[in-house]
Design a protein around this nucleic acid. Structure first.
Lengths: 222, 222
DNA sequence: AATAAAGCTAAGAAGAACCTTAAAATCTCC
DNA sequence: GGAGATTTTAAGGTTCTTCTTAGCTTTATT
């Protein structure tokens, strides 16, 4: 996840760069509007933090420019001002959210995550071979038919498909899908793998969910 | 890769043993400090997981004893306590890292891999000639084809490739790959070397696994 | 060349891991 | 509170891995 910060106050931009770096974002900093425009044109950021008051092109103008170029990158305004009209201007210019200075780092982080989540939500459809799952509507299709899955079946399938090609060990599955620890003596996983295979394998011989004996399972396209 | 777990709570040790087994480690469990000392003296472990609060010799004392005997085996502390001083004591006693209970299995795994990496420059992908193994996805490729290996085949191959160029004696192979002391009356190793050669040598005459008569085997590039 | 030692390989027994089904326990919604 | 759906446990059957055995081949030594 790559983030651009457009901010002229060194103190703040350093603080943000360090903090976001620790959260394992890749961070670039532009100290003025022109530099910001240049970087945002050249690179493909996942999110942009934009200060209201910057030298060169103003924040609001930069925001408009970015939107004009048909980019839907999430933009969060950082503003010292507290007037309703400024907020309105910002959002009208195409910003997704704003945060008032001074702010707590954690609050900013939370808002960033919200933006990235909704952005990810644009591709709420996971696919593997004939199987397609829509995370938003909670629907699953195999070939053309819709298949009804229960909650647990759904999250198991989601975990397998998100990790397609990789072997998911029983331990990891239990931790991610069942939220359990330390229960090595259960065969729920076997049962649910069986459910999924029955529902999704359209009576074919071999499943797209492969068993790796002594290790776990892996979802692979044929 | 052979790991010793010193932990008195059966639930946790079973959970760890299964989980690490799935990641193709050979795992021993000691339920108290004395047993832990005994096993760690007799066997050559690649890593030790040590609970803080155990019957018999305390975890911290066991750690000191191991270091006293000039062993540099990586030690990771498992601790329920959350005080700074305990951590300090643990690290002073010679531990390499610690993790607070309860922990996610994958976090522990990540730390284990870090310790093994710094020990021998490891990555998740091991290569030798045409053969490539991905420890994370548990896949093995020879030339372009994917080759299906069983658990034991996988860990034997891993051990050989980690020690590529070096001769692996039968005794060491048995100790690191099988969870056994050397039993001169077994020919499991021969059998498994044979399995690997069949699966990986693509019908060629000579194998990349060379036999060193009276000593063991060595994996070498052509 | 004979002999012994070590390794190779095929076949099969023992055991572990997995699959499948059914029934019990739990949750949900009227 | 009860009916239906979902989740979990349990158990028998099946398949695959692991390990042993035994006969055969290669290598080393005298």
């Amino acid at each position: 996840m790559r983030i651009l910060i457009v901010e002229d106050e060194k103190g703040i931009s350093n603080f943000l760069k360090d903090g976001l770096g620790e959260e394992s974002f890749a961070v670039d900093v532009a100290a003025d509007g022109n530099k910001g425009l240049e970087l945002s044109t050249v690179n493909d950021y996942d999110l942009i933090l934009l200060d209201w008051m910057i030298p060169g092109i103003s924040g609001i103008e930069l925001c408009r420019q970015i939107r004009k170029s048909n980019s839907f990158v999430p933009i969060i305004f950082l503003t010292a001002k507290d007037t309703v009209s400024d907020t309105v201007f910002g959002l009208e210019a195409g910003a997704n959210d704003y945060i008032k200075k001074p702010f707590k780092f954690e609050e900013l982080l939370a808002r960033i995550r919200v933006q990235l989540r909704t952005k990810e939500g644009e591709q709420t459809i996971l696919k593997l071979g004939n199987v397609e799952m829509n995370l938003e509507t909670h629907q699953v299709f195999s070939k053309l038919r819709e298949v009804m899955l229960t909650q647990k079946e759904f999250s198991l399938l989601e975990y397998l498909i998100r990790n397609k090609g990789k072997v998911c060990t029983r331990t990891r599955i239990i931790e991610h899908v069942w939220d359990m620890h330390f229960d090595s003596d259960t065969s729920v996983i076997d049962v649910y793998i069986n459910f999924l295979r029955k529902k999704l394998d359209d009576g074919r011989e071999s499943s797209f969910i492969h068993t790796i004996r002594g290790v776990g399972y892996v979802a692979r396209e044929e």
